[in-house]
Amino acid sequence: MLQDLTFGQYYPTTSLVHKLDPRTKLLLLIAYITSIFVADNFYGLAAALLFLLIAVAFSAVPFWSVLKSVKSILFLVLFTFLLNLLFYAKKEGDTTLFWRITVEGLLSATFLASRLILLVMGSSVLTLTTTPVSLTDGIESLLKPLSYVKFPVHELALIMSIALRFIPTLAEETDRIIRAQKARGGDFDTGNFFKRIKALIPILIPLLVGAFRRADELGNAMDARCYSGSRNRTKYKKLKFTFRDLLATLFTAALVAGVVLLKIFF
């Protein structure tokens, strides 16, 4: 059901990776992505893959679920692969296989496609093991220093959490409106592109009107509960770094060091 959108692709279980502080996970993901981009040969990528596999093993998420995330960008991966294969700038001494395809071009295209796949799989480990709510908390906390230069960190985080909170509500409402208009003979599945876009109006307008009504009511509810921005605000939930986070950080540091060493020596 649409209800489950709030949890994104969160895979509910308890594991070492699930229990990590969301900030740790965000920072580690950044380190992981950096190392993928620093790596300029297959040894570097292999190190990153090893790191990923160990992370997945500790997350108690089936590897298949992680792999599934690649499906949504499969087209992009293929596109990148073909583009690099066909438009590889041929150098002196390259071995041509046929037409303009070279061994070196094939390797380069594979390298770039693998990079993309590793990138997406790494990000999906984060979203599979962290609820959107705790991710929001993590991002707010990490961006906190920016609030000293008047960047609206608190407001941004609040907007994100309200958006997450209203996804199931709006999904349900959309479903209801579609049914009601179908009952009045609305047809949303046939006709050409323009006809279909036009057919969406009876759904979009009520949805929009409803969203404004909800926003208005939510605003009142927030005011009634003394909301006044970030001024004097406390936080009930505090994120805490633990021993686990230290271990994970050391482990990631090893990865980055490994990739850098591989880059230097090969």
Partner: peptide
């Protein structure tokens, strides 16, 4: 569907046209 009319809960939340006439006509024209 034209013979079994269905009025959902809070049906006023499904109004979308700019005049009453057009909104009522929606089902008929469909």
């Amino acid at each position: 569907r034209s013979k079994v009319g269905m009025v959902f809960q809070y049906p006023e939340y499904q109004l979308f046209e700019d005049t009453v006439f057009k909104d009522v006509a929606f089902g008929f024209s469909n």
